[in-house]
Simulated scan of single mutants.
Amino acid sequence: MYIVLVGPPGKCRKGTAMNQGMYFLREMGIKLAAESITREALIRELKNSNNSQINIATGDMYLHASLTIYSQELTVFLGYNNQALMADLTDWFDCRDSWTYRTKNMGTDEIIGVWVNLIGATTPDLLQTTLPRDAIGSGLTSRIIFVYEHNKGKVVPAPFLSREERELREFLRIDLERISMLTGEFTVSDSFIDAYVPWYSKYSEGAVPFDDHRFSGYFERRPTHLLKLSMICNASRTSDMKITDIDFHKALSILQMTEKNMPYTFSGVGKSSTADVMQRVLTILAVNKKVEFAYLMSQFYQDVDKLTLEKMLETLLSMGCIEVDYSEGRRMIIYKGIRNNAMSENRTKEE
């Protein structure tokens, strides 16, 4: 799976959240790619990660090349407009049985059993400058689950693990060791089929979670994301590797929760000359909930004039994203959230 945490710089503690995962990756001995690496070196690392495992149930041996990409600054890893690397990541998402890389002078590299995971973090502004506009909505971005937040979930003045948290971390490590020893293929139960097939039929009729053309490619691959997440939920719950309706509903709820803020990911991407400023205005409003117009003007006077900012607020007002209040003798802008009727209606259908 490809998962990218997105949020304003310094607001969401994206790196802090990822550091918790890095501890377990190192404890499990998971093979990690370098955080800053060339395309050729990454392909070489993937080839060198070849390993073999035996399916305990059947006795069959199979080869795989498993590599995890961990990057707290995804733009450093991807580089600027690096379409060749993005094309490779797009190919690897489908876990091909064989992937071939041919060079002019170095011959041919064949990688058997490609299995690449990606966990990264970035900001909306950096995402906008790193990815070419034509790539947004298709290709690599359609294969990524973007987890967006405006602000950190809570304030932790003493960032130390308590005794209970250290015990929990040890329990998690032991559980992850169990998961890492699972081999073979996942199977599905009748209860999973009974839950998944009706959902898929409704979804295929166009019940997308929200309206945004920039996520059209993601919507097409949403069932794939759901299946992968169902396998993860099953592995976290049991060792029988048989996916049930319990795993399906858990995976669907996680995906729906993630999709609530997902539209904000590309909010600064558009053909409008003020698209990036509009995204930053939305971010400030979402974080503070209520701000004075004069404060907004002081934050963006170097980017837009008063008339342009007022037109942007009029746009947000017509969208139902904000309200304007003069009761305190000042012009206060109140954030109401991005209104997406299709999102709430389709989530009700899924449930």
Rank of each mutant, 00 (worst) to 15 (best):
K104C: 06
F146T: 04
R214N: 00
R166D: 05
A135W: 06
A195P: 09
I111S: 02
E185H: 11
D109R: 11
N105V: 07
T129I: 09
D194S: 14
R163Q: 15
P159F: 06
G120R: 04
S216Q: 11
F219M: 12
N151H: 11
P209Y: 02
K154H: 06
H213V: 11
Y148I: 08
T183F: 00
D175H: 14
D125I: 08
S201V: 13
I112D: 07
E185L: 10
T123F: 09
V156I: 15
R169C: 11
E149R: 15
I193C: 04
E165L: 07
I179C: 01
F171M: 11
S180Q: 14
G137T: 08
I111P: 00
I136Y: 03
V197D: 12
R214H: 07
V155F: 11
T141N: 07
I174E: 14
Y148Q: 05
R214Y: 01
N105H: 12
R163A: 13
L118V: 10
E149A: 15
S189V: 03
E177T: 11
D134R: 10
T141V: 04
S138T: 15
L140N: 01
I111L: 03
G184T: 05
I174V: 11
F192A: 08
I119T: 09
V197M: 06
Y218P: 01
I112Q: 09
D125H: 07
F215L: 04
G217H: 02
A207G: 09
G184I: 07
L176K: 02
H213R: 05
V197P: 01
F219H: 11
Q128Y: 03
D134L: 04
V197R: 12
D175P: 01
G113C: 04
A135K: 02
F215V: 03
E170S: 12
R214M: 14
E164W: 05
P198T: 06
S191P: 03
G217A: 04
V114T: 12
P159K: 06
G184D: 09
V114S: 09
E220R: 15
L131Y: 08
K202M: 14
L126G: 00
I112W: 06
T130I: 01
V208N: 08
F146H: 05
L182A: 11
L118N: 05
K202A: 13
R169H: 10
R173A: 15
D109L: 11
G120Q: 07
T129V: 13
R169T: 08
T108K: 12
E167M: 13
V155C: 04
P209L: 02
G120H: 01
F192E: 03
R163L: 11
V208S: 02
P159N: 09
Y200G: 02
T123R: 04
G153N: 08
